[in-house]
């Protein structure tokens, strides 16, 4: 029997992929051996991120690791994948929302309808600003050209941020060529890992999301063709990847804030930042009004956050 071969493209460039996906795929290949091998490609390597979803539908690419938002998947849940503002506070919130609050079922239905298998969602890092000039107040956000997620950009526009979307691999250069004033795409671990800490000077400790949701996807036919043991192995490796990120980001964020030499920390006072949090709740309602499915997801997010609030410490402080 011949080896099953898959091509998988990730949203991440080589430096980041070294942490967020490569270890899991290496493990998969090692265990699967002659049965199956996955070839991993980095951001924009085979197809540009904008064409990623359709390439997976056609089968030019068998599997994808990305958030729903940046690859613009044609589903009702796209706005929630990536950073839906203030939906989560900690990285553990994401798997709980998916596994215990019913997001898995909604995602599965949405993607099955467009011929794609949603395999597994995981929590990635929080969303902070990394900028060339310091941000100490909401006023400082005005007019900043910032690389961010489409939905986060839509939300941040009301504070005068000018969201810019460019190929992921071009961001470092774009900050230097003046196309961007900053980045609101990740936590500080990624800023250091991918080199953005070298081209920006300041890190804002306030975040607009505690952890984003990103997923592994596959072409539906390719997935269905897999024998059950390989399906299970793939899921296990996805979980391994999610687990790696849980501690890599959690520890990395704290350590680099305290010990990182390249970026100076700034903070917008809580009272002022509360305006952003209030705006997020309004934004949730705007999104909920767009469709029934979106309303369903927003309700789940609201219920989850209310539960966490009631549960008290350590789930929520204050």
């Amino acid at each position: 029997q011949s080896t099953i071969k898959w091509r998988m493209q990730t949203y991440a460039g080589p430096a980041l992929a070294e942490h967020v996906v490569k270890p899991a795929i290496d493990m998969f290949n090692q265990i699967a051996g002659d049965k199956m091998q996955i070839e991993l490609f980095f951001a924009d390597q085979l197809v540009p991120t904008g064409e990623l979803f359709q390439a997976m539908q056609r089968g030019t690419i068998d599997a994808v690791q990305s958030d729903d938002d940046s690859m613009a998947s044609p589903t009702e849940v796209t706005v929630f994948g990536g950073y839906f503002p203030f939906a989560s506070r900690y990285s553990l919130d994401v798997p709980v929302l998916f596994n215990q609050y019913g997001l898995n079922e909604i995602w599965d239905a949405e993607y099955s309808a467009v011929g794609v298998k949603h395999i597994s969602a995981g929590a990635w890092d929080p969303c902070h600003f990394a900028t060339k000039d310091p941000i100490n107040s909401l006023e400082d956000l005005k007019g900043k050209r910032v690389f961010t997620f489409p939905t986060a950009g839509r939300f941040l526009a009301q504070f005068g941020v000018v969201p810019v979307t460019l190929p992921w691999e071009d961001i470092e250069v774009a900050v230097q060529t003046g196309e961007l004033d900053g980045i609101a795409w990740s936590g500080i671990t990624e800023d250091y890992t991918v080199g953005w800490a070298d081209v920006t000077n300041y890190f804002l400790t306030n975040n607009i999301s505690g952890a984003w949701a990103g997923s592994f996807f596959a072409n539906m036919d390719r997935w269905n063709e897999l024998p059950d043991d390989l399906k299970t192995l793939f899921r296990v490796c996805c979980d391994q990847s999610h687990y790696y990120r849980q501690w890599w980001y959690w520890g990395g964020e704290a350590s680099l804030r305290v010990n990182g030499p390249k970026m100076e920390l700034t903070t917008i006072p809580d009272a002022e930042w509360a305006q952003v949090e209030e705006a997020a709740v309004k934004f949730w309602d705007e999104i909920a009004a767009e469709s029934e499915t979106k309303a369903k997801v927003v309700d789940i997010i609201k219920k989850y956050n209310a539960d966490m609030q009631k549960a008290g410490r350590p789930y929520r402080y204050g």
Binding site: G59, T60, D170, V173
Partner: peptide, 23 residues
Amino acid sequence: LWGDRGGYDIAFSSAMKLMKWYP
């Protein structure tokens, strides 16, 4: 190499890649 599953779209997706190369 890839004809059995897609592959014909590589030429055009390169055009989209080129579009995004802002410099």
